[in-house]
C-alpha cells in the first residue's frame, strides 16, 4: 500500500520538475546571454523530462495491478501520457539541438526559419499536453485501488485469464 507521505513527496518532486520544465520553456529565450547557459538549461530540462518519465514508470511498476500482471489495464489508462511524453522528449531534444547548433557561435542572432518555427510550435504545444497529462496521471496514481487487492481487480484478472 502506498503511504501518504511517500506519495506526497513523489508528487512534490514531479511537480517541481514540471515547474522547472515550464520555466525553461517560457524564459529560456530570454536567458541566452551565453550559449552555455542555454546548453545547461536544455540539458537539465531533458533530464527532468526523463526523470519524470522514469518516476511515473516506477510508480506504475509499484502498483498492485502491475504486480498481478494486468499491464494492459495500466497501459489502457496511461497510454496517452506515455506516448505524449515520448513525443515531447523527442521534440525537445530535436529543438534544443537545432537551436543550440545555430546559436553556438553567436548567441544573440536571428536564427528562425520556417522549419525551426514549426518545430518550436510543435514542441511547445506538446509541452502543454505533456503538462496536462502528466499532472493528471500523477494525481490518478494516488488512487488507492491500484495498490490493494479488491473484487474488481479479481474480476478483471479472471476476465483476462479467459
Amino acid at each position: 500500500m502506498l503511504q501518504t507521505g511517500n506519495f506526497s513527496l513523489v508528487l512534490l518532486i514531479q511537480l517541481t520538475l514540471l515547474a522547472y520544465d515550464l520555466f525553461v520553456n517560457s524564459f529560456s529565450e530570454l536567458l541566452r546571454g551565453a550559449p552555455v547557459i542555454q546548453l545547461v538549461l536544455f540539458i537539465m530540462q531533458d533530464i527532468a523530462i526523463l526523470f519524470n518519465v522514469i518516476i511515473i514508470l516506477l510508480m506504475l511498476f509499484n502498483t498492485y495491478v502491475f504486480q498481478v500482471g494486468l499491464v494492459s489495464l495500466l497501459l489502457e489508462r496511461f497510454r496517452a501520457l506515455l506516448i505524449i511524453s515520448a513525443l515531447y522528449l523527442t521534440l525537445s531534444i530535436c529543438f534544443h539541438c537545432w537551436a543550440l547548433n545555430l546559436r553556438w557561435f553567436q548567441s544573440n542572432r536571428f536564427i528562425w526559419t520556417d522549419g525551426l518555427q514549426a518545430l518550436f510550435v510543435f514542441q511547445r504545444t506538446a509541452a502543454v499536453l505533456y503538462y496536462y497529462f502528466y499532472k493528471r496521471t500523477a494525481e490518478c496514481m494516488g488512487d488507492p485501488r491500484l495498490y490493494e487487492d479488491s473484487l474488481w481487480l479479481r474480476n478483471i484478472f479472471t476476465r483476462a485469464r479467459q
Binding site: L2, F7, L11, A138, G142, P144
Partner: peptide, 12 residues
C-alpha cells in the same frame, strides 16, 4: 482519513 487520493485532490 488523509489518504493518497485526498493529497491528489488537494493538489488538484
Amino acid at each position: 482519513i488523509w489518504t493518497t487520493r485526498d493529497v491528489a485532490m488537494k493538489v488538484h
